[in-house]
Design a protein around this nucleic acid. Structure first.
Lengths: 140, 140
DNA sequence: TCTTGCACCTCTAGTCGCTAGAGGATGTAG
DNA sequence: CTACATCCTCTAGCGACTAGAGGTGCAAGA
């Protein structure tokens, strides 16, 4: 079992060095053992945990949710209902966010298309921003 | 011209009272005149500016971008090229965000559908999170 | 007139998830 | 032995607010 430095862990997991230390500080990652010279020495299990965290963060899970997911993972006999609930909640959030972004996209397109590239006093971008009534879509 | 209190401005614009004060503190909103008792007294023009800011924020523009848009609005003889560029950049951002959220949605759906509601050791949610290789979509 | 009670004031600190930088120790290659 | 990269801890900063403490202003009812 050869030990892995934080830099190596960073390279292998794709999580930046300061971020790894940050995860340790907030208790997402356990404190690893240290070398003679007080440098962090990780093991394979830590790398797996880091990959888990990274993937979950990429999926937009909040740190608190990840904390729950990690404790679930640590105890495989538990029911996975909580994990399921967390994922479902996240799915609903993502769906809402997509809907609202699609509305925004439509509105931005109207703005940009309407812009005749002239002076500001006829600029559709500024106009639409100034008067929400001109906004074609009821996104908010 | 009757004066408008900050609470009234908040109600009419939909921007919370502390947020209005915050916008003033960062220079998005000019310092309004004050009543005898040192309370902020807004005018119609301030309400229009607040509505502009609110709408722009809802469209996801950053405060710096809004600052630029506001100075453009204040000088109607300028070319609207900057406004156009800002809106276009935002459009590109929104489109990217939508694409990545759609990929996330697909992945979350796979996770949730695969969950047999049993124990954690067979939970697809946890599994997929733990092993990015199982992730069907190349969203990141 | 007095008092109740809400809305207002300023100021500081906290939120989230990092990121940047200072100032110093350690580890490795030439 | 000397560079130089990498590591360490610590504090502060980011964006865009939000929360709370501790105090003042103002309008309406008793």
């Amino acid at each position: 079992m050869k030990k892995i430095t934080i830099g190596e862990a960073s390279r292998q997991s794709g999580v930046k060095v300061p971020t790894i230390r940050y995860y340790e500080s907030i208790g997402l990652l356990a404190e690893p053992s240290r070398s003679e010279g007080n440098q962090r020495a990780y093991e394979q299990a830590d790398l797996r945990r880091l990959a888990f965290i990274r993937h979950a963060r990429e999926l937009g899970f909040e740190v608190d949710a990840i904390r729950t997911l990690l404790t679930l993972q640590d105890d495989p006999h538990q029911s996975c209902a909580s994990a399921d609930a967390i994922a479902k909640a996240r799915l609903v959030e993502v769906e809402q966010r997509i809907r609202s972004l699609l509305a925004l996209k439509a509105e931005l397109e109207t703005m940009v298309e309407g812009c005749g590239h002239g002076r500001v006093d006829h600029c559709r971008v500024i106009e639409v921003l100034a008067d929400h009534g001109q906004c074609a879509h009821t996104h908010h």
